[in-house]
Every structure is written in structure tokens, then in C-alpha cells.
């Protein structure tokens, strides 16, 4: 799970696709298209050159992904706030699914991402864009205006508390979506103590 998170970066995935394409699609089909003067598009599209299933373990053989223990499975379910399996059968199914997913992850991890910064989101990453996003004196003008210096000799900066920062008390019914409430509190049912 951890590794999955680490290589979530779209760039890594993108570079995988690119390398696959150049390896299988371009070399094979473009070479062919040079031989035959007319590209047979129909034929080209009739059979995929690559499938995601190549990253999954073969159906008949066991995955070579590390085995997940029952204890680890339950731990992961807890972390994800998912209910535990009903019975042995369901647990076995979960473990098998997880195992093939891990196989997939291992395949993804084979991509060399050294030196590639993960893409977190699409933003203006130019110098200009960064400069515009920078929080400097100008951006803090209003916030600084909400402060005062107290004391004539022993000078102290204090934020003015009387000021209400925004339009406040947003006009919506916070508890309106609550399934259970007591007074102005949400109520949740937890496990029994000990």
C-alpha cells in the first residue's frame, strides 16, 4: 500500500506508457508501415499490442507478490475503516484480490522513477507563476493591519481580538446532515470500552 502511494505520481505512470508505446507500438507498427505503403488501420486496431492484464499474475499460477497474512489484511481493513470479512471464504477472496493487486503494483514499481518529481497537481510552475503565488509583504498587508503595538517602553505586538475576521458564522445548518445528534452535538457510536 505504501509503495502504491509513493509512485502514484502521474508522471511515473505516463513514462511507463510512453516506454511501452515506443517499445511495442512504434517499433512494430511503424516499421511495418514503412514496408507496406498503405497503413491497414483496421488490421492494426483489431488486435491490441498491450493489455493491462500483462501486469496481472497469470490465472493458473500463483502470484509472486509477497504473501499477505490474515493479520495484515485485518490491519489494512481497519486502516481503511472497512468491515472485516464475514467468514473464511470471504477472507480468502479478499486475500487473493489483494495479492493480484500487489502483483500489479510490483510491476508498476519496476519503472525507474529516479530523479522524477511526482506530479501533485497541475499548476503554473514557471518562475512567473511561482512569483504570483508568493506570499510577501503585499499579500500580508491586511493581516498586518490587524495588529497593534502595545506598550511605550516594553513594546509588544498583539493581534486585535475584537476584530471579526470574516463574514462569519457561515449561514448553513451544520447539524442538518447529522444522523444522530444531541443538542448541538453530532453523536457517534463507538465500541464498548475494554
Amino acid at each position: 500500500m505504501h509503495h502504491l502511494v509513493r509512485c502514484t505520481g502521474l508522471r511515473a505512470a505516463g513514462s511507463l506508457n510512453a516506454s511501452r508505446r515506443s517499445a511495442e507500438f512504434s517499433t512494430a507498427s511503424i516499421a511495418r508501415s514503412q514496408k507496406e505503403s498503405i497503413l491497414d488501420i483496421e488490421k492494426l486496431l483489431s488486435r491490441p499490442t498491450w493489455s493491462v492484464s500483462s501486469l496481472l499474475p497469470p490465472k493458473d499460477s500463483a502470484s509472486d507478490a509477497p504473501e499477505v497474512t490474515s493479520k495484515q489484511l485485518h490491519h489494512l481493513l481497519r486502516l481503511s475503516a472497512l468491515p472485516p470479512p464475514k467468514d473464511q471464504q470471504e477472507e480468502a477472496k479478499m486475500l487473493s484480490t489483494l495479492s493480484s493487486q500487489l502483483h500489479f503494483v510490483k510491476e508498476i514499481q519496476k519503472v525507474d522513477t529516479a530523479g522524477i518529481e511526482p506530479l501533485r497537481s497541475l499548476r503554473d510552475e514557471t518562475m512567473q507563476g511561482e512569483k504570483e503565488a508568493e506570499l510577501g509583504m503585499e499579500a500580508m498587508k491586511d493581516a498586518l493591519a490587524q495588529e497593534e503595538v502595545r506598550g511605550k517602553h516594553h513594546k509588544r505586538i498583539r493581534r486585535r481580538r475584537d476584530h471579526t475576521a470574516a463574514k462569519q458564522e457561515e449561514d448553513w445548518d451544520v447539524l442538518g446532515t447529522a444522523q444522530r445528534k444531541v443538542g448541538r452535538y453530532f453523536v457517534v457510536e463507538g465500541g464498548k470500552d475494554k
Binding site: 486502516l79 506570499l135 510577501g136 509583504m137 500580508m140
Partner: peptide
């Protein structure tokens, strides 16, 4: 266990040296 990952909803925080 905490599965730390960058928050895609938030741009990086860039602080000006003048401030």
C-alpha cells in the same frame, strides 16, 4: 500506516523573503 501523500487540492506554500 498514515499513508502520507501530497494534498493535490493545495498549491505549495511560497513565502516571500521580504515578509
Amino acid at each position: 500506516d498514515y499513508r502520507y501523500m501530497p494534498d493535490a487540492d493545495l498549491p505549495p506554500l511560497i513565502i516571500g523573503s521580504d515578509l
